[in-house]
Design a protein around this nucleic acid. Structure first.
Lengths: 190, 190
DNA sequence: ATGTGGTTAGAACGATCATTCTAGTCGTCA
DNA sequence: TGACGACTAGAATGATCGTTCTAACCACAT
């Protein structure tokens, strides 16, 4: 990936997180990337939609990688999950409660308006679901339960970020995380 | 509330659900309410922000009322929760996966940009959290667990709506709902 | 030196944004 | 009847939107 393309992608990623899809103008992407309109449309001839799709793909992969890495670095899956909620809370507080992930926000804004972006978000979510399902099965959960718990994990993270940002307090995320981890522990015992 | 004011509020409510906050223009609110710019700004002199705040207050109360009513109409809290997830799935599928609730979307879009709206959303969420906590305590959960579970319930609903809309399939909401209800059942047994 | 293709530069376009403003209509009560 | 306040009407404003366009730049091949 060319350096300019990378700068555009990074700028768009940050702006979408902070201001959402419709709240981010191409002019601001141009300014934040320290380039010009011509360059942005050179690398993303499809304009804003193509740029957002690229951000979704990149962020989707990055978060899945983060998830896997944290679990790999922890003695058990349960400890890994607790760590993820903890780290999420710390990150929120240390970034002035900016949305840590652009995908959910974009999905919510344009799911009914931009099929291309809805599909890109769906792909990212499915990657997370599959990854979580595999990990939870490996941890000892029965297959169908593991998939349900993977879904619950993602809704807990996405919803927890939302509540914590709205409250400007990590507590809702941590509380939901505690309840989720208790549920996970309870399923392990079966 | 005057009829015109009600028409404006209803139109804005629907548009925010479908297109989000930044994706909804005042022009479209004017058209959808079958009134004129003058009327809209007569009832909401604070413009778009004041209008959105009114939508949030109204929707927040309506959803809390719905939550209470469904639980009141069910033999146990657990059955009530299962019913809510079921109904949510049906509603999504029957409305072409339009966001059932404008609050989470607005919160996500403008939490870092419009303090007034962030606070309005926070108030609505806190009402739900308190309501859920009370109900869960009444069902037999210990106080701190009940609050954590109330948070988890809201994240599950919000996140479940998000995943289901993105997938255009109620299944993620239902799966997360199953996992949540299993967790609730497990907490009841203690 | 002379292209050549990838990249940068930024002016310009028409559309749409939220909001303001003046003028007019309507029901109600004096 | 007259007057007043609530409401409606919609043109107008200046800003900003996403995108397009032409010209220039630059490293490198011939």
């Amino acid at each position: 990936m060319k350096p300019s393309e990378n700068k555009i992608l990074a700028a768009a990623h940050d702006l979408f997180r902070e201001y959402g899809y419709n709240g981010t103008s191409m002019k601001r992407v141009v300014e934040a990337s320290a380039l010009t309109t011509g360059s942005v449309y050179h690398f993303y001839p499809g304009g804003k939609v193509e740029l957002a799709a690229a951000v979704i793909v990149e962020a989707g992969g990055a978060y899945q990688k983060l998830f896997e890495q944290v679990l790999d670095g922890c003695p058990t899956v349960l400890v890994g999950l607790e760590t993820l909620f903890q780290q999420g809370g710390v990150m929120l507080a240390s970034t002035d409660y900016i949305d840590p992930c652009p995908i959910g926000g974009i999905a919510r804004e344009v799911a009914n308006v931009e099929p291309k972006l809805r599909e890109a978000c769906d792909l990212a979510f499915n990657g997370w679901i599959d990854s979580g399902t595999r990990r939870f099965i490996a941890a000892g959960l029965e297959a169908t339960v593991a998939r349900d718990m993977a879904m619950l994990f993602i809704t807990t993270i996405e919803g927890g970020f939302l509540l914590a940002r709205t409250a400007r307090d990590p507590e809702p995320l941590l509380a939901a995380g505690r309840a989720f981890c208790a549920a996970f522990r309870s399923q392990l015992r079966r």
